[in-house]
């Protein structure tokens, strides 16, 4: 009889990790400055071993200081958004839930826009830090209104998130309408999701949140299966539901906050990756969470590589690419109804 085992999860995770490594290698060789694939790979491996043989100084800088950090960053964000999306879909029992559903992203946007308008965007940490603070503040406010007598009520939380999100959207529109032309361009790119703002050091801000968040959610993955058929159902099977909800909502929200703060609002990843994984591997979170993380990372690195190279030397915001993939894919899901019968 088919049941999910540690062996199955490990096998699939290893296969998806190989795919991820392949995508990263592909991504560092591609770009407006052509570095032949084999040479790029030699540069990568020699730098891992601490050697400095292959390639010119420029090529090494491009690959090791620009493309590799950007790919790693895109990987973390892709993994984070996918896992956070999968979690919100389970907790809110809503297949259309995405990482931004609780308004965390609007808070991040307000933080980022304020930083841009104040000219903080040019400091290396200014933009992501301001946006992360905006997101954290929003999480605090949403949870303050979404909790009653120590319990999280999903519908109240969702409403609080949506309403606070709309209020923040009004702020965003206000800021856009009063900003200057140059700032406007930056703001719009940020809102569409773009990695060109970030640098290697942004990884240091976000990776603890994403790693820890994904880890905590993975520890709860068996219980997330149970809450998929409702909170009462999970209680009947012995789950401490209030703790599960608190840890999971907060982890998913922090992952979203960290992801959004370094690259703006990248849409669709948190929707299409979890649904695709369910389509392939089934709804069990013990497999869904690691697979979504790895596949999401590969998907976003690939999308960002497209965004960099499609109209090189002009860079597109990566959000354009994910939406271009995501839109048609979602129509496909709607038409076939393979994943969710209620859509």
């Amino acid at each position: 009889m088919k049941i999910i085992t540690l062996k199955k999860v490990l096998t699939i995770s290893i296969l998806l990790s190989l795919l991820l490594i392949f995508v990263i290698l592909l991504s560092v060789t591609m770009g407006s400055v052509k570095v032949p694939p084999l040479r790029s790979i030699r540069i990568l491996f020699q730098s891992i071993l601490g050697l400095k043989g292959a390639g010119s100084e420029t090529e090494r800088t491009i690959i090791l200081s620009l493309r590799l950090p950007r790919a790693i960053l895109a990987g973390f964000v892709g993994a984070g958004l996918s896992v956070s999306g999968a979690t919100f879909q389970a907790l809110l029992r809503n297949p259309l839930a995405d990482p931004y559903i609780l308004g965390v992203s609007s808070g991040a946007a307000v933080g980022a826009i304020i930083a841009i308008l104040l000219g903080l965007g040019t400091f290396s940490f200014g933009l992501p830090l301001a946006s992360f603070l905006g997101a954290l503040l929003t999480i605090m406010v949403v949870f303050y209104f979404g909790r009653q007598d120590g319990k999280i009520h999903p519908h109240t939380l969702l409403l609080a998130g949506v309403i606070i999100g709309s209020f923040l959207s009004a702020l965003i529109m206000f800021f856009i309408s009063v900003s200057q032309k140059e700032e406007l361009h930056t703001i719009i790119f940020w809102l569409m999701g773009d990695f060109s703002f970030s640098n290697a050091r942004a990884i240091l801000i976000i990776f603890p949140y994403i790693l820890l968040g994904v880890f905590f959610l993975y520890l709860r993955s068996r219980h997330l299966n149970l809450i998929l058929s409702g909170e009462e159902n999970a209680v009947q099977l012995g789950v401490d539901v209030e703790r599960l909800k608190l840890v999971s909502y907060l982890s998913a929200s922090l992952i979203t906050a960290a992801s959004v703060s370094v690259c703006g609002l990248i849409g669709f990843v948190g929707l299409i990756i979890p649904h695709s994984v369910r389509l392939i591997f089934g709804p069990d979170h013990r497999l869904l969470i690691p697979s979504s993380a790895l596949l999401g990372a590969s998907f976003l690195i690939a999308s960002d590589t497209f965004a960099r190279t499609l109209l090189a030397p002009v860079e597109l915001p990566v959000g354009v690419i994910t939406a271009a993939f995501g839109g048609p894919f979602f129509i496909y899901l709607l038409r076939t109804r393979k994943v969710v019968k209620t859509l």
Binding site: M1, K2, I3, I4, T5, L6, Q89, A90, R93, P95, L219, S221, R222, H223, N225, L226, L228, S229, G230, E232, N233, Q236, L237, G238, V239, R278, G282, P283, D284, R286, V339, V340, K341, T342
Partner: peptide
């Protein structure tokens, strides 16, 4: 209890195995 609506359907076996959840504790599988 009265039935809840299933969002992402598990198989029969997976559903029955969920009954073992209280015995698994922190164990994942």
């Amino acid at each position: 209890a009265q039935e809840t609506h299933l969002l992402f359907p598990f198989s029969v076996l997976e559903t029955v195995l969920m009954g073992r959840s209280p015995y698994l504790g922190q164990l994942m599988f």
